[in-house]
Design a protein around this nucleic acid. Structure first.
Length: 149
DNA sequence: CGTGTTTGACCTGCGC
DNA sequence: GCGCAGGTCAAACACG
């Protein structure tokens, strides 16, 4: 693949870009675990047994930016990309790389508004941020205000 | 050399 | 029981 898809590899320029974050009223602990139409909780055949992490923290918010990747100070590793039905753009799946920090992040663009990017976080970070960006600072500030912690 | 990204295959849950 | 939709992993490759 020498020719990259629609997504350019450029680092996030949200640093200098004005990012508007709109927090949506999303429940954090009443997210239908079995009601979903997809297997959120992948069943491990063997090895990991007894993970009693029933609490699933999910948080979603919308950001108005031209780039899908928002540098929130954490390191994210993309582990998948799939096209969603109802969406003209594919959805990207990211995971936080850290010792014991298994936080997942989902990024999806709205078909109606290509400028709107929906970011969905799943899980809680068990480590402090290593970097703080001005752009995300204001976003993160709003998140904490809405976070039902 | 290490990290991260990419893509296809495979799995699971639900609906019909 | 099969198909669809969504989600995840793993191998290979590209880049710093």
């Amino acid at each position: 693949m020498e020719n990259p898809p629609t997504y350019f590899h450029g680092r996030n320029s949200a640093d200098t870009m004005k990012v508007e974050a709109k927090i949506q009223p999303l429940r954090a602990n009443n997210i239908s675990e079995g009601g979903g139409s997809s297997g959120s909780e992948r069943k491990v055949k063997s090895g990991q047994k007894g993970e009693k992490q029933i609490k699933k923290h999910r948080f979603a918010f919308q950001t108005r930016s031209q780039v899908d990747i928002l540098d929130d100070g954490y390191r994210w590793r993309k582990y998948g990309q799939k096209g969603v039905k109802n969406s003209k753009f594919p959805r990207s799946y990211y995971k936080c790389t850290y010792k014991g920090c298994n936080v997942k992040k989902q990024i999806q663009r709205l078909t109606k508004d290509e400028e709107i990017v929906v970011t969905t976080y799943e899980g809680m970070h068990t480590h402090p941020l290593q970097k703080t960006t001005e752009s995300f600072e204001q976003i993160f500030r709003q998140i904490q205000a809405y976070a039902p912690l």
